[in-house]
């Protein structure tokens, strides 16, 4: 049995489930944002920054961000294990993906709760 160490979850099944769970969260967040943009005419700074002041929206946004990190990690891990056969290049690619998602996560928290 192939033992994987760079995948997201404990098993292929947990990855499969997390992929779906994160996808649903991201779909809901996307629909919410599209709804917001369609129903907000003459969007100004006050409304836009006001949207992200609310704790509920901040939690929802962070949940979406974490879901995005998991979704991207699992998704691109799947792609890389399918297409990048040379181990060195594949691991390098996976490390870049994981670091990028971590950076976006930290940046996102800073944007939502920072100065």
């Amino acid at each position: 049995m192939v033992t994987n160490i760079t995948n997201f979850g404990r098993s292929g099944l947990s990855d499969w489930l997390m992929q779906r769970a994160s996808a649903v969260v991201l779909a809901l967040y996307t629909l919410y944002m599209v709804g917001f943009f369609l129903t907000t005419s003459h969007l100004d700074y006050a409304t836009w920054s006001g949207l992200f002041q609310g704790t509920g929206m901040r939690i929802f946004s962070l949940l979406a961000l974490i879901s995005l990190a998991a979704h991207a990690w699992i998704g691109l891990w799947t792609v890389s294990t399918d297409y990048i056969k040379p181990t060195g290049i594949r691991l390098g690619f996976q490390v870049v993906v994981i670091l990028a998602m971590f950076a976006y996560l930290v940046w996102g928290v800073q944007v939502l709760w920072g100065a």
Binding site: D44, Y45, W48, S49, F52, Y104, W107, G108, V111
Partner: peptide
């Protein structure tokens, strides 16, 4: 996209930019 979100939330000027 992230950069735009960051700048647009930073200040009035950032939003206008």
């Amino acid at each position: 996209m992230f950069w735009a979100l960051d700048v647009s939330l930073s200040s009035q000027e950032g939003f206008e930019a």
